[in-house]
Each structure stands twice: as structure tokens, then as C-alpha cells.
Design a protein around this nucleic acid. Structure first.
Lengths: 141, 141
DNA sequence: CTCAATTATTTACCTAGGTAAATAAAATTC
DNA sequence: GAATTTTATTTACCTAGGTAAATAATTGAG
């Protein structure tokens, strides 16, 4: 039996997330995408056109991260950036091509995710989700 | 009640890990360290002198990642790199200064980690650890 | 209406992680 | 023992995330 002091838990957490991200990117490479880019596409497919601020607030990352990733995605034909009415902001929307590819990539991602958690029952997955939510400096749930 | 399909779980997982890493780095900045550097120091304090291969295999990252991080750590006076008997390999050891600072940083890290999981009982933490271990492409435990 | 404050985005500079290919030294094979 | 293969590390080039400071446009105060 292993010990599960906080150090072991955080160590394992980092290792697992690195492994997941690596595998995830590996799966997505067939589609010319990276994990972070997919999360933006998913977001845009779900909510429709969004400003950059909408995106980084939803994904909980900093603004420059989104600027950079969108620049790459625009270059690779995934998104279009247009100026909003408020001329400070940029409206982001998926290209036709991105929209067409969504369903196929989504299925691949879904299958990958299912595979990653196939060692867990759905009850355990639910538990895991709730425990994960409890982590944080304010002990919030 | 939220849904906890796989997408929500992985989304939350990434967000939580980003948040944890950010907070962790924030705590460590007082000591002039980053999370990854600390994990190497911890490792060297625990196992003593190691080769770079020992380190990246233990931490489950690729070799170039360790090369880079050790270069910074050497520059900042945390480690010394000497040539091993096998002249291909580099032996890494903590500097006196790093060794001296270990205990203090370790306490700060410990307190930070305790704070992050204070919303969980020790039973829940144990459960979380075991559930986390179940994630993976081979469904291994 | 003008000037100060706020807001959205970007730029510059940092760490961390990955892959592929290059070295260099050791181990193996013939 | 020379040539091939393996192993340890590095280099070059990529994505992703962060902070601090710079723009640029809008809002608000007076």
C-alpha cells in the first residue's frame, strides 16, 4: 500500500495530467490540433461567436495565452477574428472548415476520454469529479 | 447539480492543475524557485546524488526538460553537475546552500499543500489518490 | 467637452513540457 | 580491434502557460 500524504497526491496529480495531455495531443495530432486549440474550438462550437475575453475567462487562463493560441489557429484556418462594435475587442468565430471537422474530432476526443477513464466505474468518475472540485486555497466546493 | 461526463471531468482537471501550479509557483517565488525546480530538489534530497537520467525517469518527463531546468538551477546555485565515471553521464547534487534551504522551503510547501486540500477529509484525500491512479490508457491501477 | 480611469488586446520576456535529430561515450558484435 | 549499436545528454524547434508593461479604444468625472 502506498502512502498518500499531500506530497504524493500532488506528485501523482502532476504526473497524470502530463501523461493525459501528452496522450491527448498525440490523438489530436492526426487532426492537426493541440489540446488547447481543441478546447477553444469546443468552446466556440458550444457558445457561438465570442470575444477573446469571453474565451479566456471561460477557460480560466490569462489573456496573452489566448492571443497566442488564436494567432496560430487563425493561421491554420480554424478561426476568423473580426473587429467588434467595441473596436477594442475581437470577435472570434469558427471557420466553415473547422465547423465541418468538429463532429469527427469530437468523436475521437470522446473515445479517447472514455478510454482514459475505463478503469473507473461511472460512480467513481462522479466521485472523482466532486473530490477534484474540493481542491483549492479556499476549500470551496 | 453539474454533469460529470468525461469532458467536464477533464476540463475541471486541467483547470485545477493550472490553478494549483500557479499558486504553487506563487508560494515558491519567495524562495526564488519554481514548481519543477522544487520537485528536482525534493528528489535529490530524498535520493542523494543522481544522474540526469535517474531524474527524468523518476519524474516521468523527457530528458531535454531536465537538461534545461538543471541548467537554470545550476546558474542559480541550486545544484552542481559533475562528470560521472561513465563520461556520458552527469551526476547532479545539491549545493550546500540548497541543502540548507531545503527544510524551510519544504515546510512552506507542506503548508501550502495542506491548505489546498483542507476542503477534504483525510479519507477523501486517500480516495482521491486512488481514483487518480485509475486514470490512464491501460486502465491500470 | 476634456482628461483621467478602465477595459481589451498585444508585446516582450520568463518557465515548462514535448519531439526529432545531433553528439559523444560506452558496449557489442563480428 | 574496427565497426555497429546503444545510451546519456544536448540542441533546435514547437506549444502552452505565466507576469508586467504597452497600446488603443471606451467610459466616466468634473
Amino acid at each position: 500500500m502506498q502512502n498518500f500524504d499531500t506530497h504524493s497526491v500532488f506528485h501523482l496529480l502532476h504526473q497524470q495530467v502530463r501523461m493525459i495531455t501528452k496522450e491527448f495531443n498525440n490523438q489530436l495530432s492526426d487532426h492537426g490540433l493541440y489540446h488547447s486549440q481543441w478546447s477553444i474550438i469546443f468552446c466556440l462550437e458550444k457558445f457561438g461567436s465570442m470575444t477573446q475575453t469571453d474565451i479566456w475567462k471561460y477557460l480560466n487562463v490569462e489573456a496573452p495565452t489566448i492571443t497566442r493560441t488564436l494567432t496560430r489557429m487563425e493561421k491554420n484556418g480554424w478561426v476568423i477574428r473580426t473587429q467588434g462594435e467595441d473596436r477594442r475587442e475581437r470577435l472570434i468565430e469558427l471557420t466553415e472548415s473547422a465547423h465541418e471537422k468538429f463532429k469527427e474530432v469530437n468523436r475521437a476526443v470522446y473515445e479517447f476520454e472514455q478510454d482514459m477513464v475505463k478503469g473507473m466505474s461511472s460512480e467513481e468518475l462522479k466521485q472523482f469529479y466532486h473530490l477534484l472540485k474540493k481542491i483549492g486555497p479556499k476549500g470551496e466546493e
